[in-house]
Nucleic acid binder design. Structure first.
Lengths: 133, 133, 133, 133
DNA sequence: GTGGTCTAGACCACA
DNA sequence: GTGGTCTAGACCACG
């Protein structure tokens, strides 16, 4: 699993790491059970501070994406989100609304948006069965 | 044009204002040429600091959404984004990828995502012809 | 709202802060909407590093107990937990099982346990209406 | 006596073993005088490091739950905790307070908590007479 | 070796 | 002023 970050991006480094891991899982590049690089290792690779990696892993754990085990490492989980259904729905609607609004202001048309979403969906491995909470 | 902000949201206030204006324009609640409330007026309405409104208007101007004219006020523009076509494309792809990745981790399936996007698109008035930069 | 921590306890400092805030809310000593001490202020009061307070506030925010607003402060929320019902149930059962097992090994009898729980419940302000997710 | 541990849980493995033994004793699945599996045996069974089992047995001995006899093995004890009465009381109160506070923040009501505790108590064999220290 | 916690101190973003 | 992020480096706990 390759993780890339851009130190010039306004997006916080730890969030870039979080997204990269989530994207790898969604894309199928990494699978539940896989072990992520150790904190020190990834920090060295990305040339960032170990604490920043720790923070990213903490966020991922709270999102139910990884499990950290002291002394053992950080592993991709297959737990899925523990949020209530209503909260999930709310988040999805919000995500969609924001994307559509931004796309509108970029001058795109409905077909463009639908096509972009369809392409993004094609990159994701949905067939993997995942536990719903 | 009604602007609502949620002081309990973790999203910065000025960003909420920016998004609200963009959403109003996309939804058709406001049209190019309309005059936005003055900084002081909007600040009072939303019970936030005028500096926060100033900042929001600055961002909106930078994004080509409004034009500020000395002494006259702040007007909605139809300029559209002045980004290069390639950059726009990149942003749209990125938006879609992020939304899809988050949706995946929330446990949604492709149909759910497409449906949410379609619904969000229905709320937007795309028929308004807008000049492409 | 008074927060006390014990630097000699094996419980991490930030967790002590987290629990203290949750307990204050449960006890009614603090109410939703109240502003917590600023990061620097609380750090000074407790004679710990500001980062440790930041961490506690982060955890509280993820648990839906507080909302942090940049530039404004950290406020007690009335959101309640966003977890799915099943996950909540699981956590409650687990909490009860652990308490009972420990109580058993301390030599207490069922009546003692029930009494202790009843007393703890008396200290909590359940009448406050809270939103269920 | 069956011991199960969950390698995906954030709880340290040795603590899971400690709790499992305590729970078995409380539940009646195991009785004072029973011999626990040898360190190597249990380590193999659970597929964990022998050091981890050693550590768990050490903690159990410190808590007065088992007695380790050189060359003979590790036996469940009926000694009970050797803490002073006041200290025990304090621990019980603390346990109850923590459980109740967490339950409050999960959105449960007093009846739910009492019911969960009652159910947990039903699983424990309190009739076994145990010597108080 | 792994992750977990804490300190110290810097600099940026928001209201 | 507030919180948000990041670095550097220490020491502890777990396997």
């Amino acid at each position: 699993m390759l993780i890339h970050i851009d130190s010039r991006s306004p997006e916080p480094l730890f969030e870039q790491v979080v997204f990269a891991v989530k994207a790898a899982l969604a894309k199928g590049t990494a699978k539940p059970g896989d072990r992520l690089p150790s904190v020190r290792e990834l920090a060295r690779e990305l040339a960032i501070n170990p604490n920043t990696v720790v923070r990213a892993y903490e966020v991922l754990e709270r999102d139910g994406v990884v499990v950290r085990r002291q002394g053992a490492g950080c592993f991709l989980s297959d737990r899925g989100s523990d949020l209530a259904q209503g909260e999930k729905r709310r988040q999805l609607t919000d995500l969609a609304k924001r994307m559509v609004t931004e796309a509108y202001h970029l001058g795109f048309r409905p077909e463009d948006v639908k096509k972009a979403v369809a392409e993004a969906l094609d990159d994701v491995q949905f067939e993997t069965k995942r536990r719903q909470s």
